[in-house]
Design a protein around this nucleic acid. Structure first.
Lengths: 228, 228
DNA sequence: GGCCCGAATTGATCGATGTCAATCGGGCCG
DNA sequence: CGGCCCGATTGACATCGATCAATTCGGGCC
């Protein structure tokens, strides 16, 4: 739960500026945001914000992974998005006094930039590169979320795992080796599965030429996997 | 499959202008869009566009309901959103040459406005009310889609049905009566259920004071339903 | 008001996945 | 180098929801 906060260092600034969201901003908007962003380091499992809290800022993830989730009445928590380096989350820029509609937790040691919503909103009024960047980011999130929803409803667990693997295979490869960037725990959450179900899905894929050792996954026949 | 297309009539223009998306536009942007929009009437079950087609335009629904869905390799189709009057869909404004990532079908007789993406994109560059409206619309869709995804992963079928009903009950009512605006078929798709599963969910809710007759649903104790 | 067709319900069954419990394994620290 | 601990796997089971088939219902139309 360490919580070291300070002005952006050179390294953080450069990471932040390379982000998909920031990269397309005008020089002036970029420097305003770089100057006002707070850089925050957080230990594994620390909470970044909680469902229902007031939402004055959104976040840009610099390093590590973050879990976005909601809680059911019974206390069960459900992930619906896993953010990685460069991702923006909590784009709650509409309606001044919004509250976060979900919680965010660092899945490991993490470094995020905290950006004031009001600032961005005002900037977007004057600078079209800012509003365009917002539109682009939102469109992509909408598309990605829709994709996840459809996958959930359409595909079985092994199919979803296969999809995930194929997404990060070179398109034309005959065989491939992938290293998961995080624990299987997180992957399970991403795919809407219990960890046990993820394990079983991997087992089921063994017969399709997928072998797992720790975080490393070998795919002997990419084309065959596509047929699943 | 009738397909009568013409310039916006007075009635269509007024419907279109009252849309959430259009309402907040500047006078000038509004009139540009009203003038360039094509109004199209479509018979029940006609296809508006198909997954993979080139996407030069997005749509604003004036009357009726539209199903957005994707097809699996096996031909099964999965709804992920049901649009009603006033809804905008296929906001595919990013990246010039995008293709529709899903298909859209009229669930009944329908009237839509077809709006050129390029036009809106250009308008947004100059007119902040346009980009703000886009940001608002996209944010809301993202929030709604996330909500659906979380509901799917978190709640059982009767709970999702109860949620749907409660969403359209007066907040403080003791009892309520709701008339579905469309066939149960569509509702099932919205909730990610097979029609049979929707039926069974309604049966399960009988013991919680929910009774169904055709499209009319009586809820004897709203508060009790919230506890499900 | 009655007929008729498509929609909705109901029943039976099966497959998929969540849950709980026990065991295994790997990496990290001493 | 060994032990410990947490994450991963496996097994057994319960539950949910999809599917297929048979029937009933309801609403639109004459």
């Amino acid at each position: 739960m360490l919580d070291k906060s300070n002005k952006a260092t050179a390294r953080s600034r450069s990471l932040l500026a390379k982000t998909a969201f920031m990269r397309s901003l005008s020089q002036s908007a970029l420097s305003v945001l770089l100057d006002s962003a707070q850089i925050i380091s957080l230990g594994a499992r620390s909470t970044i914000f909680r469902e229902g809290e007031n939402a004055p800022a959104f976040y840009c993830l610099l390093t590590g992974y973050v879990r976005l989730y909601r809680m059911g009445k019974d206390g069960r928590q459900v992930d619906f998005r896993i953010c990685g380096p460069g991702d923006v989350f909590a784009e709650c820029l509409v309606s001044q006094d919004a509250r976060y509609p979900y919680s965010a937790q660092a899945a490991e040691t993490v470094c995020v930039a905290r950006i004031d919503c009001r600032e961005v909103r005002q900037l977007a009024e004057r600078d079209a590169t800012v509003s365009t960047a917002l539109i682009t980011t939102l469109s992509e999130h909408l598309k990605a979320t829709t994709e996840v929803l459809v996958n959930d409803r359409l595909h079985t667990a092994p199919q979803r795992v296969a999809d995930y693997l194929l997404d990060r295979c070179p398109v034309d490869a005959g065989s491939a080796s992938i290293r998961l960037p995080f624990q299987k725990n997180l992957l399970a959450g991403m795919l809407g599965l219990a960890p046990e179900a993820l394990s079983r899905a991997f087992s089921a894929l063994r017969s399709a030429g997928v072998s797992v050792r720790g975080r490393v996954i070998q795919i002997s026949d990419v084309k065959a996997l596509r047929e699943i």
